[in-house]
Design a binder for these strands. Structure first.
Length: 449
DNA sequence: TTTTGAGTTGTTCGA
DNA sequence: GTCGAACAACTCAAA
């Protein structure tokens, strides 16, 4: 009997509970359903990234990955009829849109006498599991992270050794959509697939992580793990990474464990507060005064604000489908505090372009910067784009790499072109930071009063 | 129920 | 240039 394995955010074979469950029951038919609703809502970099990882997974299955296009609630019951399958195995989705979709699919399958069999989630600890002593959800990260680590997580799941595959043809339309996604001028993406992810992870584990905890903050240096695009599609499971970390010690290792913890924490927050995807987690701050987005938003999106570190980050995102985390905070602070634009506009732009764009991490991260999220953060925390640039890109290498107009400004001068005769073709600053900082503080003060 | 310690990532000013 | 204090209280989670 064919066991359908419906893949979504779990494009891997290693440490895959749903694959293990399917393989234990019979021959496995791995299937990916291209949902046009989703496919159209993301940018070219994200479509290309998904496609490249699907291709890699297809190779791992010796060309046995079945691709279909359409609404999964129609495609999957049809595929079950076609193959005689009685079960559809899947990794449980935990974000609001996916939860709703999966409920609709479960209903459609049930009507066709097919069972949906969920195994695991994309997280080491399932969202909703970690609770306070009184059984309520945690609101702040640090106590949550203590409880999360105390709770612990299962060991990685072994790859099935006796895997038998079932076959079903792919749609021509699905093939066409994927071919299209890899055609034309594409951003410079990372190498796709499990092997590439593992290689990258090993390099990080033995290199940057072992060497220096501070390298992670320097955008000119390749000092971060760059696991986020792989984690986003489940090319690697965090449980695998946590198991590897257990073999290492030191401050940087614990720090990295907590970075994975943030990913899990934000998924947990979203599980308990699904509305916080696009609404302020702190209702009191919903009254904050914003400016209607205008030409300044476009300047920010395109990297033309006249602030080198902001523009470098925005251009890196367009070029690579990825932005260094330090720079994400700086650019987000600039949009919300200097331009006074609602964080949701920035979050949407990030989701469109970032290959690792995840609704929980992205949107809660934005709310953290905007001051409307989980952190009891001092509202006066406003990033100064020049100070941040000088501090974390002291030699100016990062801004010159992404903003070629600054090429002739040596060293740290690249962060303040206006002090060094300007840079040909580079725009003037679109706002006065000191003035807008004061304005941001005024608006927060008005909400508090 | 009350109390207590603590809270990712910043900036500016003045000594 | 370096360092500590001020920014200003508020909420959370556990004891």
């Amino acid at each position: 009997m064919t066991e359908i394995l419906w893949l979504r955010r779990d494009l891997r074979r290693a440490d895959h509970p749903a694959l293990a469950a399917a393989a234990a029951a019979g021959p496995v038919l791995p299937v990916f359903v291209v949902d046009p609703r989703l496919w159209r809502s993301v940018g070219p970099a994200r479509r290309a990234w998904v496609t490249a990882n699907l291709r890699s997974l297809d190779e791992a299955y010796d060309g046995g990955l079945c691709l279909r296009v359409g609404d999964p609630a129609e495609v999957l019951p049809r595929l079950a009829r076609e193959t005689g399958a009685e079960r559809v195995h899947l990794t449980r989705e935990t974000a609001p849109w996916g939860v709703r979709r999966d409920a609709a699919v479960a209903e459609a399958l049930s009507a066709a006498d097919v069972a949906g069999v969920p195994s695991g989630t994309p997280y080491a600890v399932d969202p909703g599991t970690v609770l306070t002593g009184s059984g309520t959800p945690y609101q702040v990260f640090s106590p949550w992270a203590r409880a999360w680590q105390q709770h612990g997580w299962p060991a990685p799941v072994a790859v099935p050794t006796d895997l038998r595959l079932a076959e079903a043809p792919s749609d021509d339309e699905a093939r066409r959509l994927l071919d299209e996604a890899l055609a034309g001028d594409l951003p410079a993406l990372a190498a796709a697939g499990e092997e590439a992810a593992t290689e990258r992870w090993r390099t990080f584990l033995d290199g940057a992580l072992a060497a220096d905890d501070e390298a992670r903050n320097v955008p000119a240096v390749d000092g971060t793990s760059r696991m986020s695009p792989y984690l986003r599609l489940g090319v690697v499971h965090p449980r695998t990474l946590l198991a590897d970390l257990a073999g290492h010690s030191g401050a940087a290792v614990q720090r990295y464990r907590l970075e994975l913890g943030w990913r899990e924490f934000y998924a947990d927050v979203l599980h308990h507060h699904p509305h916080s995807a696009w609404a302020d987690l702190k209702p009191a701050l919903a009254a904050l005064e914003y400016d209607e987005p205008g030409p300044e938003l476009a300047a920010w999106c395109e990297g033309r604000t006249g602030f080198p570190i902001v523009d470098a980050g925005m251009r890196q995102m367009l070029a690579e489908g990825w932005m260094h985390n330090r720079v994400r905070m700086i650019t987000a602070s600039f949009l919300t505090k200097d331009l006074h634009v609602w964080w949701g506009h920035g979050a949407r732009h990030f989701m469109l372009h970032l290959c690792d764009g995840d609704i929980a991490s992205n949107n809660h991260g934005w709310q953290w910067v905007a001051g409307t999220g989980t952190d009891a953060s001092p509202y006066f925390r406003v990033f100064n784009p020049v100070t941040q640039g000088l501090k974390f890109d002291p030699d100016g290498d990062y801004v010159r790499r992404w903003v070629p107009e600054l090429a002739d400004l040596p060293g740290k001068a690249a962060h303040e072109p206006w002090k060094h005769g300007g840079a040909p073709g580079y725009p003037d600053r679109i706002v006065d930071h000191a003035q807008e900082r004061a304005e941001a503080l005024r608006r927060y003060e008005a909400v508090r009063a």
